[in-house]
Design a protein around this nucleic acid. Structure first.
Lengths: 340, 340
DNA sequence: CATAAATTTGCAAGCGCTTGCAATAAGGAA
DNA sequence: TTCCTTATTGCAAGCGCTTGCAAATTTATG
């Protein structure tokens, strides 16, 4: 390229300006201990006046930390993911880290390839927010002792740090809430089968029913995929049942929205004719009409905690994997009413 | 760190495996023209079997392209931004680029600092999705001839590539629509003053009124900040007016949601008592009840076009700045009804 | 078949930074 | 004041890659 970019200010310039060697500058900038206070100040001042900004690639190439962490997500168009991202971002900013975002678009190979590129690449650590982690690259990450944290997903090996929420308890609470309000025929819209939270939520649902001595009617469980589309289908199925369920528990809010839409289209009222309860409490949940009663997952907090775990792991690579499970909470709004 | 990370596979390994020099490998990998087909194949095969993945830092440090582009956004919790991001992401993936995400959280200094770090850093180009671009770093970007594109924001100098939408026309259309339905007292919730789109939308609003020979009643224009909170305030103000407006035009959907909430709290019905129209058509707009009538901005498309412009600019740095203005479109749903 | 021209390839330098190790300066104890 | 520590600093190597330039190889031409 023949364009004349102004020469970047490097560590050498700072060194020259402050009359020390470049290694000393490097040490100052990296908060090294053995630097005389007076030199430290000199260097810092020079850096400031020159407007020096470190070159990340060089730093990271030379073996230093890049202060960038990678985040792997399936896609972006999803309140659930966005919320978690928000938490991640907040905490990262606080810690002075930058974010590299990788969207996999559900392409398996891409995930694996990304993980490879990422680990030999720029980032100091990796956050995985993909519904189905592939054991293969998890193993790879572990074998390289590369710091990573799984968000809202299990790892059978138990060797990964994980942040999730009390899915089972949350579903149990929601179901109990419906039961206490007199509902006995509760439709359940399940999520993607293989995903951890799907299973846990279904378990919680079943547990509550059992506790009430109710026999599980399998026809009341409809398959969904955590999105509105599939939930509409599922709801239509449920609405066709005889007798019709008096309440629907959707495995996540997106599904609940789908359910609401289907219900309205069937000319039924929410909650007068049928109650709806969701899971997640994404921001949209409070702007629907009626506002959605749902189980709140502290999504942003999950993101924040994940970052904390990751950063600690980066600090101390020998840390044992940990699992943090945050509490869910029933958020009562307007989409559920007592059945009598 | 004493952890023994397995040695990464470098370009040298590939060179050795294929029996050529490392520079040749580099040329092959970068699609250089002057390489014999047979060597090309040899190298490619070796790279494949070794599972070679280029080290981005090294590449970019050495002056090559990183195939990463930076995206600067104020924050993440916003359907509007998320939608644009989605478009950006889609197009980027298609082109084989990765995304580095920077959130400024509205801190001015941070923006400037980021821009600096970014340009001397990893990315090949920059997408700016910040409501108020600061002339200072825009100038800096330009002086370095660093490729960048502004999304949904103006630049007085006219020297930036820009992607935006027909704000004026959209607002005009929406207002006309209300007028044609018989509304004569239309409240307007404005956005952040300094922002380009705020002005354009207000202009469109006024233009339509004028065309109908209506005198502008300044009290009908309430100040908002593009968020629900401020819109609630603004709406309360408007509802207090005598006579009450029969419709409210919110400068964006978020504001419209705030308006809806305030209206409901005032025990008025939408659209029976008062109509509401928004701007943007973020995904939430279609799940509110009643579903929001709004002016659709092709947000994801804006993101995609921005990427295209940027990529072209990266390809050819001498390209003149261009401006692409995408058409908005009135989306009629359920929050507006005729006034008689 | 020799030789110039065109096509390929390899070498070396260098991108900006970290870090082990050696060198120097400073501080104490003798 | 001298010598041994200890605190600071500087040097040089090297992280993995691109690229200008020269060398080597091939092809075309007379």
């Amino acid at each position: 390229m023949d364009i004349q970019r102004p020469k970047n200010i490097t560590i050498f310039d700072v060194a020259q300006a402050s009359g020390v060697s470049y290694s000393t500058v490097s040490r100052v900038l990296n908060g090294f201990a053995f630097v005389k206070e007076s030199t430290r100040l000199k260097v810092l001042e020079a850096a400031e006046t020159l407007g020096y900004v470190a070159n990340l690639q060089a730093r990271s190439l030379a073996g230093g930390k890049s202060r960038v962490i990678g985040l792997l997500v399936p896609q972006l168009d999803n309140g659930y993911i966005n919320e978690i991202c928000r938490g991640i971002d907040q905490e990262l900013v606080k810690a002075g880290y930058d974010l590299m975002l990788y969207t996999t678009h559900h392409e398996k190979d891409k995930e694996a390839k990304y993980v490879k590129a990422i680990t030999n690449g720029l980032t100091d650590g990796l956050l995985l927010l993909v519904p189905l982690v592939q054991a293969s690259y998890l193993a790879m990450l572990r074998s390289q002792n590369y710091p990573y944290v799984l968000i809202d997903q299990g790892d059978i090996t138990g060797e990964s740090s994980i942040v999730d929420a009390t899915n089972r308890q949350g579903a149990y609470d929601a179901t109990r809430y419906l039961l206490e309000l007199g509902h006995r025929r509760i439709g359940f819209i399940a999520g993607i089968k293989e995903v951890n939270s799907t299973k846990e939520r279904l378990e919680g649902f079943k547990a509550a029913l059992q506790e009430y001595g109710l026999l599980l009617d399998e026809t009341l469980i409809a398959q969904g995929f955590f999105d509105a589309e599939s939930a509409i289908q599922a709801t239509n199925l449920l609405l066709g049942l005889e007798p019709r369920p008096t309440a629907i528990f959707a495995s996540n809010d997106l599904s609940a929205f789908g359910a609401m839409e289907a219900i309205r289209k069937a000319n039924l009222r929410i909650p007068e004719d049928i109650s709806v309860i969701g899971f997640d409490d994404i921001p949209q949940a409070s702007i629907t009409y009626p506002k959605l009663t749902t189980v709140r997952q502290p999504l942003d907090q999950m993101g924040r905690v994940a970052v904390k775990l990751l950063l600690e792991q980066i600090q101390n690579p020998d840390l044992e994997p940990r699992r943090v499970t945050l509490a869910t909470q029933l958020v009562v709004r307007d989409s559920v009413r007592a059945f009598s």
